[in-house]
Nucleic acid binder design. Structure first.
Lengths: 239, 239
DNA sequence: AGCTTATTTTGGTCTATACCAGTAATCCCA
DNA sequence: TGGGATTACTGGTATAGACCAAAATAAGCT
């Protein structure tokens, strides 16, 4: 009830937001359909959608392909400096994590990867694609590349758990340094499909390079997150 | 020319993206108007807009209020562990930074700030609001709170430069630890207005708490960034 | 009960039109 | 020439209708 409630879609937005805040609509619950939301006030579906897009950008609601709109659960906290692995830190926050391995194959080192891994072009690398979920909602997909000469036979193992712990326990490889790049992005084609969201939805791209104590690149990882699924928290000492 | 070019708006998206990639449209340049983009193919304005929203989410184009659509410049790189201040690191990347102080006042410590600063409720604090630009495009607005007892008279100084260096050179206060929280968000009402973007545009919220060597909170800072203006890069040693 | 097949519902895309509020360009006068 | 008022143009909001593909549900058949 502020000033610019001349805008219909903001009025609708506020109505829905209030129903979420008040607890009438709970996390994970389904919203009434767009056509049902039109009922009382003579408002076009396009306007309803505008309001829903707004709420989606704010992280209050999300949509599943053609199924409907749902109230978003709270985000998980991600601290790149305390990398205990997805499974453990999601669990520590009282949520239920899950991992699916979409594919695992051997690839050969190309020019870009050669740069990253300091390995000759043509050298064998493992390429793993996984989808990770929280409480049954897919929140990120990742592409991992691992130097095959450091972890021979890696893809024979079950990778639906923590990759870090497999590298540690089976191959004795520990991560000593982490380089993390993050940037807001749009989830397009492949990523959007794997996350079952509409192409063009904003997301967060996280690129991580893991080094061992000798400075060798152990793992190169590119993750695409739903924008509403995480909160990044970094605690660092300034040099 | 892949598979799902049945979608008109993706076709339009690709056309425009190609014109940007090919250099026909350069960074900072203005796109033809939505109505001009309709001309050849019998395509509705709504479809053109859908394509533009897609490109906006991808960070390829941005819009200025009712002026038009423009090609986005490349993002700046932001490393929270090497905090030299906005002015210097933007300049180091060959861009032209600018700061405007929107307001600076004395406020009293409320419950939330009391928690953060470990100061009694009612204690004086400085509240500074600034807008920062890169190459004349506003990219972030920030709200800074500083403990007035640590830096008496701070707001008498010119704050259009680096606050960190004022704290250091005038008050001898150095930052020893930085706690940074980041999360994708929507730019709403106040922030959107200050950044001159449409409310609801995705952005990145950065919350920083700076501690001195004694562990006292020196500065509490909340920034709202345009989603397409930055790339975060962290390089850390794992404990 | 379980399984398959229709049917309905849902969001996703698209067209066409209209009016409004800021911006940018133009015009015109001093 | 300079500056202020006017006009044209831009994106922003809104309506109403239509069709489609995927998802969810209901119906029907073992």
């Amino acid at each position: 009830m502020q000033q610019p409630d001349h805008l219909h879609y903001l009025g609708v937005r506020n109505d829905i937001a209030d129903r979420i805040d008040s607890g009438e609509l709970k996390a994970g619950e389904r919203l009434p359909s767009e056509r049902q939301l039109q009922v009382g006030g003579g408002v076009a579906r396009g306007t309803i959608r505008e309001a829903l897009f707004q709420l989606e950008a704010e992280g209050l609601v999300y949509r599943r392909n053609r199924s409907g709109w749902y109230v978003s659960p709270p985000p998980v906290v991600y601290d790149p400096t305390r990398w205990e692995g997805f499974m453990s830190y999601v669990e520590a926050q009282g949520r239920r994590p899950a991992t699916e391995t979409l594919s695992k194959t051997v690839i050969t080192c190309d020019a870009m990867l050669s740069q990253i891994f300091s390995r000759p072009i043509g050298a064998p690398l493992y390429w793993i694609r996984r989808r990770r979920s929280i409480d049954d909602r897919a929140v990120l997909i990742e592409s991992i590349v691992v130097d095959a000469s450091l972890a021979p036979g890696l893809i024979e193992h079950d990778l639906d758990g923590s990759l870090t712990s497999v590298l540690k326990s089976v191959y004795g490889i520990g991560v000593a340094r982490n380089k993390v790049d993050m940037r807001p992005c749009a989830l397009t084609r492949g990523e959007a499909e794997a996350l079952r969201v509409k192409s063009g939805l904003p997301g967060l791209s996280v690129e991580r390079t893991c080094y061992d104590a000798q400075g060798r690149v152990v793992e190169f990882d590119r993750e695409y997150w739903r924008h509403d699924a995480l909160k990044i928290s970094v605690d660092i000492r300034v040099r």
